[in-house]
Simulated scan of single mutants.
Amino acid sequence: MLVMEFKAVLKESQKKAVDEAIRTSKFVRNKVLRYWIDNKGIGKKELYRYNTQLRDEFKFVKDLNSHACQASVENVERAVARFFDNCKKNVPGKKGFPKFKKHYRSVEYKQSGWKLSPDKKSLKFTDKKGIGKVKLKGTWDLWWFDQKLIKRVRIVKRADGYYVQLCIKVDNSENLEVTGYALGLDVGLKEFYTDSEGRTEPNPRFYRKSEKRVKFCQRRVSRKKKGSANRRKARNRLGRAHLKISRQRKEHAKRLARCVIRSNDLVAYEDLKVKNLVKNHCLAKSINDAGWRQFREWLEHFGQRFGRITVAVNPAYTSQNCSECGEVVKKSLSTRTHVCKCGCRLDRDHNAAKNILNRALSTVGHTGTYKNAWGDLSSTKPGSGLVEQDKSVNQESPDF
């Protein structure tokens, strides 16, 4: 799958129509979720029947395209399935019980309710919400794709405007030549990552650099009267500041992951539980600012796209063990140099990266690893429990 995103050029009347469509989509989702909670044991057939009842009962729901309403039901269905799946796997902590949505920012259409213009520079939405013809502003070229290949169309509202995302069913995988290189990565806070060759990538710290601006915008919001137009404008400025940081972080992780995957046949990294790491309130802000999880997702995505092997290994004792002799050398977080009796003297993160690579190479040859090398699945350390890694979508933007 390939996701193309365009900036939407809308009139004020169209913006109100899009907002109404988004509110209707949220209404359907929350009503269907309430119906599921009140009627235990019902299946997805009952949820779709209830969606039909809502369309008969409320006119503003019927004005929205029927497939867009079905997409809202599918969101509930996925949330319920994810919750039961976590319960079956005995995932520690909260299992992710489906919640009602207060802030909803998108409406999704399937293969009806919209029509692509002949010049493929605009979309016309044909339901009764009154959105009409939407001009697409972007650099993507849609001339290469048949309209039948477009499986989903989503309108997303962000702080800086509205965007249209097109999900296109095409094979965007590429075959690269074998490089003969394997790399281990150790992510950190001082450096973004250190590889097994001793090379480092500086940590950009996007949030830390923009924190002064974010705090200024936050103070402006808190000073405005609730419900006023000035508070709404101040909230929008705050949202734009956060949106800029998130885009910087995403592009940074995307660029690095692509370069690493293209340059190596095997890439190993730590199976870090970031959700648990951020419980340390002294480091939570810095860990979230680094974006380790996002970097890992892009590594797995490009690993599938380019047919490379990606291996997530257990991070236990990768910093303590010697990469040369395997001897355990105890050290605190403040100790940045690894010194062993065997004569090995390395930077702490360099030693950890070499240990990560050695553990990954020890898993090659297990069942499933060579299959993953051909791009069928993303490879993981056997028994690591990274089932979701094999379900990552093969697309340019995992946000779709």
Rank of each mutant, 00 (worst) to 15 (best):
E5V: 14
F6Y: 15
K7P: 05
E12G: 08
Q14Y: 11
K15C: 13
K16E: 12
V18A: 07
R23A: 14
N30D: 14
K40W: 12
G41H: 08
G41N: 11
K45G: 15
E46N: 12
N51S: 14
N65Q: 11
H67Y: 14
S72I: 08
D85V: 07
K88P: 02
K94N: 13
F100A: 10
S117G: 03
P118L: 01
K129G: 07
T139I: 14
F145T: 07
K148M: 01
I155H: 04
C167Q: 08
N175S: 11
G184P: 02
T194Q: 00
P204V: 05
R208Y: 13
F216M: 14
F216K: 12
R219G: 08
S222I: 04
S228P: 03
A229P: 00
N230M: 05
R231D: 02
R232K: 14
K233C: 07
L243Y: 06
A253K: 11
Y269T: 12
Y269P: 00
K273H: 09
N280T: 04
H281E: 06
G291K: 11
I309Q: 09
N321R: 09
K331F: 03
L333S: 03
S334K: 10
R336K: 10
V339C: 03
C344A: 12
L346V: 01
R348C: 04
H350N: 01
H350I: 02
S362E: 05
V364E: 09
G365Q: 06
H366D: 10
H366G: 11
S379R: 12
K381V: 00
E388V: 02
N394M: 13
D399K: 05
